[in-house]
Simulated scan of single mutants.
Amino acid sequence: MARLNRLRVYPVKGLDGIDLEAAKILRGGTVAHDREFALFDADGDVVNGKRTDRVHVLETDFDPETGVLEVETPAGETNRFDLEGDRGAAETWFSDFFDADLSLERDTSLGFVDRRGMGPSIVSTATLRTVASWFDGLTVDGARRRIRANVEVAGVEPFWEDRFVGDGAPAFEIGGVRFAGVTPCGRCVVPQRDPDTGEPIDEFRERFVRKREELFPDWADADAFDHYYTLMIITRVLEAHRGETLRVDDPVEIVAD
């Protein structure tokens, strides 16, 4: 049976994700705590993996209950910052680490997602397993950390999510919360890199595109895809279903309308 297998958010944009057992859909249509914080430089540009591979060498964890962010450096130094009470210490530390004048901003209504008018990202476990098989030494969890989806669905075939974009695509529900596919997710440089070290896989994009085209599902709408360097989809949660909660092991069902 198709079910919600993992629910993951990225509390500070560009840094590590955390797994949750349950999460609310915000009124803005995104998952609570996803990209809730982001680092910006003096020009208003965000610090993320597209901009610098330095983000990969940091290990981070976040406690949604306390608002405490834990950051571990490659040297084993651990720092804890209270993002609820005082973000100033975190701003100073990250400014020193990235050698830039940074501010740590917060948005609890939508988060600092790339696509402001859209919602959660969706991928299947089988898709991640298939992509991992394309590269020597790449594990399913390694693929998961490179792709950085919010919602992972188990009990379905590889590239199951592709059916929800394009003309006439169906919607789907997770625990009664209805999602509509909006667009395939074109990938950037981040999936090419080891999420711990930032080291790239040689010719990652070329092999990925070749395998993606070779295995593109017959039942997907090819016209909805601009190119084959895509993986996972971006969705929109119906407004009537915002404010509801997703839970791991919720059933997933395709709906016709």
Results as ranks from 00 to 15, higher is better:
Ala143Ser: 12
Arg51Val: 15
Ser103Asn: 05
Gly243Trp: 05
Gly176Met: 02
Asp16Ser: 14
Ala220Ser: 13
Leu246Ser: 04
Ile25Ser: 04
Ser133His: 04
Ala143Asn: 05
Ile233Gly: 00
Ile147Trp: 14
Pro74Asn: 03
Asp96Ile: 01
Leu7Gln: 05
Phe179Gln: 11
Asp221Glu: 11
Val209Ala: 11
Val177Arg: 05
Trp134Phe: 03
His241Asp: 15
Asp202Arg: 15
Thr73His: 02
Glu21Cys: 01
Ile18Lys: 08
Tyr228Val: 02
Arg8Asp: 01
Met118Pro: 00
Val165Met: 07
Asp249Ile: 03
Asp194Val: 02
Asp221Ser: 12
Tyr228Phe: 14
Phe159Cys: 01
Asp141Met: 09
Asp45Tyr: 04
Thr108Cys: 08
Gly88Arg: 12
Asp202Lys: 15
Ala89Glu: 14
Gly175Ile: 05
Val46Trp: 12
Thr130His: 01
Thr245Lys: 10
Phe40Trp: 11
Val47Trp: 08
Glu21Gln: 13
Asp107Ser: 10
Arg178Gln: 08
Phe81Val: 00
Thr245Glu: 14
Ala126Gly: 09
Ala149Trp: 04
Ile25Leu: 13
Cys185Leu: 14
Leu69Phe: 04
Arg87Gln: 05
Thr235Ala: 12
Ser95Trp: 03
Ser103Thr: 15
Asp249Gln: 04
Thr230Val: 15
Asp19Arg: 13
Val12His: 03
Phe159Asn: 02
Arg144Pro: 00
Ile234Pro: 00
Pro170Lys: 02
Gly155Trp: 02
Phe81Ser: 04
Ser121Glu: 00
Pro200Arg: 11
Arg212Gly: 00
Ala100Pro: 04
Pro191Gly: 05
Asp136His: 12
Ala240Asn: 05
Ile25Tyr: 07
Arg8Gly: 00
Thr73Phe: 02
Glu253Ile: 09
Leu83Lys: 03
Lys50Leu: 09
Ala224Gln: 09
Arg27Trp: 12
Glu213Asn: 15
Glu173Ser: 14
Arg129Ile: 02
Arg163Gln: 14
Ala2Trp: 06
Lys13Asp: 05
Leu39Phe: 15
His241Trp: 09
Arg193Ser: 08
Asp53Tyr: 09
Phe40Val: 07
Glu21Gly: 13
Ala23Val: 11
Cys185Thr: 15
Val151Leu: 15
Arg27Lys: 15
Lys24Gly: 07
Gly168Asp: 13
Ile234Phe: 07
Asp53Met: 06
Ala154Lys: 06
Val153Ile: 15
Asp43Asn: 03
Gly142Pro: 01
Thr108Ser: 14
Asp107Leu: 05
Val153Ser: 01
Gln192Val: 00
Asp202Gly: 10
Asp107Gln: 04
Tyr10Met: 02
Ile147Tyr: 12
Tyr229Pro: 06
Arg3Phe: 14
Glu214Thr: 06
Val140Ala: 13
Leu58Thr: 07
Leu231Ala: 03
Asp107Glu: 05
Ser133Leu: 05
Arg207Ile: 04
Cys185Lys: 08
Asn79Asp: 00
Val113Asn: 01
Lys50Tyr: 03
Ala32Phe: 08
Ala154Phe: 04
Arg115Ile: 14
Phe204Gln: 00
Glu21Arg: 07
Leu20Met: 06
Glu105Ala: 12
Phe97His: 11
Thr66Asn: 06
Glu105Lys: 14
Gly85Cys: 00
Arg115Tyr: 15
Ala240Arg: 14
Ile25Thr: 07
Phe208Ile: 03
Ala132Cys: 12
Val71Ala: 03
Leu26Ser: 02
Phe216Ile: 05
Ala224Phe: 10
Phe208Arg: 03
Ser124Cys: 09
